[in-house]
């Protein structure tokens, strides 16, 4: 006997997919597709400061952003000095922060993966910097690096390492160093957590097999740990790099891109251009550049670390 479904039930059945997936698609459209499209559109427009109207200007925003201005408008061929210096700052900031925190995080994760006494306590303690709001961490480090009564100057003086105060946040190179230190402090726990989770995936027996095979510690790391850690490294580095390229909180709170433009990075420049200088078009163009760079970095990370050890 076949069971006849009532017409209403049949209709409801047909609506199942649109009803369940629909809201999600709408949500994705609202938070990803619309802003991205708006960004792309804005990057091609110029807001007339007098009339507040948006005018289509083609690629002029990109030209003005990337290339030097000669006689009022950007000329192709010569890069704008501020674009170069801010890009250099960003590369230094992201490069050093990410690599230092990655190596540090990997080391601590490997240590915490061992059967150490007090491991549980240490695991919890290590997360604290990350769960603090970034702005709070930024404020804390700004106070610590303060030149007259900051804790770091105080400590260094008491230890007899320095005699005068070091103007950490008002010297260009030192300010960048201070930013990197704060960034490493805030984000290393994130790396630790991700890599520690990855280390749990390494089958214990493989270490035994490698030990019996006579593999050295380095060889065991490269031949057993690393292949299993690759997916976690991918996640950790991707998120970490994206975060740092976009990171505004720490920079804004600690240095506001100063002194001068010595710690100005893409994120703070974007914020300044779009919000402070009221040039949404140029800001959007910078946003598009940022998006493209991020995509390129993620794609190359995938190329390097994307393979699971079990894949054929």
């Amino acid at each position: 006997m076949s069971i006849e479904k009532s017409p209403l039930r049949r209709k409801l059945d047909k609506l199942f997919v649109p009803l369940t997936v629909g809201p999600t698609l709408l949500w994705i459209a609202a938070i990803i597709i619309y802003p991205t499209a708006k960004l792309l559109l804005s990057s091609l427009q110029f807001r007339n400061p007098v009339t507040n109207e948006m005018e289509f200007v083609g690629l002029r925003n990109f030209q003005r952003l990337i290339f030097a201005r000669e006689g009022g408008d950007a000329a192709l061929g010569v890069f704008s000095p501020s674009f170069v210096s801010i890009t250099t700052n960003t590369v230094i900031y992201v490069g050093f922060s990410v690599s230092i925190s990655f190596l540090l995080g990997l080391g601590i994760a490997l240590l915490l993966d061992k059967d150490l006494k007090g491991r549980g306590w240490f695991r919890t303690a290590v997360i604290v910097p990350w769960i603090l709001p970034y702005v709070m961490s930024g404020l804390m480090w700004r106070w610590m690096f303060q030149s007259d009564f900051g804790a770091i100057n105080g400590a260094l003086q008491r230890l007899g390492i320095i005699s005068g105060n070091i103007p950490f946040l008002s010297d260009g190179a030192l300010a960048m160093m201070a930013l990197i230190i704060a960034d490493v402090w805030v984000f290393t726990p994130f790396i630790i957590i991700i890599l520690l989770a990855g280390l749990q995936n390494v089958p214990e027996q493989l270490y035994d097999a490698a030990e019996v095979d006579g593999a050295s510690r380095w060889s065991r790391f490269w031949n057993v740990t690393y292949p299993f850690l690759k997916p976690s490294i991918l996640v950790a580095l991707t998120i970490r790099i994206i975060f740092d390229i976009r990171a505004l909180d720490l920079v804004w709170v600690m240095t506001q891109g100063g002194p001068g433009k010595s710690t100005e990075v893409w994120a703070s420049w974007l914020y300044r251009t779009a919000q402070v200088f009221n040039e949404p078009g140029t800001g959007a163009a910078l946003g598009v550049v940022l998006l493209a760079v991020t995509f390129a970095i993620v794609a190359s990370l995938y190329k390097i670390f994307g393979e699971s050890p079990y894949e054929a």
């Binding site: 027996q205 493989l206 097999a209 019996v212 095979d213 050890p309």
Partner: peptide, 27 residues
Amino acid sequence: IAMVFQNYALYPHKTVRDNMRFGLEQH
């Protein structure tokens, strides 16, 4: 000594040949 493990403990990212070579290479 050489050991055979319950779950085989083969290195999943290496080919059979490289799995077999590994111990000899380490020596």
